[in-house]
């Protein structure tokens, strides 16, 4: 299979057969949003709340999470099996010894598992695509109404900034949209950051950024899934052909590596650190001219 690389909005090269819903990413997102919603009544109602995450959006996210989880669990077992088979293949020094009956058997097992993996993805992707599209559409409607139609540019700016009196010592979400961080890590960070927010205005600011980030990610993911689905048919055909010839191609290994990176994660330690939380009002002085 020709695993040509494509580039995401975050500038990360990805392979066609790759899903961005690993390690309970959507479940983490659901937790995050739930925590936001449940925390709201206890907080001061100084500023109007943004209705970016109503129950319908939450339901969409939860459903997407369930679908993703199902696919993850199915793939995880297959990935482990592929790892074991691959290790056995290497340890048995089968590379270059394809004529050996034992090695041929191992190759066939590897190809079977590989095709099984593609099959799991093929079965789950349509529902996944539907769920992601539904979440994206719900968020799209909310963003358009709450930020696009109900706010002027100045309102938007003030929402993002929060009110001056409520900005002291409040951590803000990192700009994840272009950070190159994987989706699951991003959602974990959403949760961590937002769960520490203490004011309504600040929460609005975070919600606006988070909703925007999720929406753009969903758009990207939706596009990626549709391209992946197209690719699967081709990959399956190639896998079957390779199986008949008993060859484990580098492309097949790439696909497996790609799926693994989604399930088991990439290190986020080398990402840039978030900027420190800062005071909103410049050094305490307020000019009569300040807008």
């Amino acid at each position: 299979m020709n695993a040509s690389l494509s580039t995401t909005r975050a500038g990360v090269a990805v392979q066609p057969i790759r899903l961005y819903f690993g390690k309970g990413a959507v479940a983490a997102l659901f937790l995050l949003v739930t925590s936001l919603i449940t925390a709201l009544p206890s907080q001061a109602a100084n500023s109007p709340q943004l209705k970016l995450f109503p129950t319908t959006v939450l339901e969409d996210i939860r459903h997407t999470g369930d679908v993703a989880k199902e696919m993850e669990s199915g793939l995880q077992e297959l990935i482990s099996r592929l790892d074991q088979q691959s290790q056995l293949f290497t340890e048995s020094k089968c590379e270059g010894a394809e004529e050996d009956p034992g090695c041929t058997q191992l190759q066939n097992q590897l190809s079977d598992t590989y095709l099984e993996m593609l099959d799991v993805m093929d079965k789950n992707l349509p529902e996944m695509e539907k769920a992601v599209d539904s979440t994206r559409n719900s968020l799209q409607k909310r963003l358009r109404r709450e930020l696009g139609q109900k706010m002027t540019p100045w309102d938007l700016q003030e929402t993002l900034l929060g009110t001056a009196s409520q900005q002291q010592d409040v951590s803000r979400p990192t700009m994840r949209g272009r950070s190159g961080m994987r989706l699951s890590d991003r959602f974990s960070q959403y949760y961590r950051l937002v769960s520490t927010n203490s004011s309504n205005a600040q929460q609005n600011a975070s919600l606006a950024v988070i909703a925007s980030d999720i929406y753009l990610d969903m758009e990207e993911t939706s596009d990626l899934i549709s391209r992946t689905r197209q690719e699967i048919a081709r990959a399956t055909l190639m896998g079957k052909l390779n199986q008949s010839f008993g060859v484990i191609t580098p492309e097949m290994q790439d696909v497996v590596a790609g799926v693994k990176s989604i399930l088991f994660g990439d290190s986020a330690n080398d990402l840039p650190l978030a900027a420190p939380p800062v005071a909103a009002s410049p050094q305490g002085y307020q000019s009569p001219l300040e807008m």
Binding site: L143, L147, L156, R172, V209, A211, D213, A275
Partner: peptide
């Protein structure tokens, strides 16, 4: 940071609009 956030939010909001 406000500029970066505005850029992100506008990208999403304008796409939704």
């Amino acid at each position: 940071r406000l500029l970066q956030e505005t850029e992100l939010v506008l990208e999403a909001t304008c796409s939704a609009c």
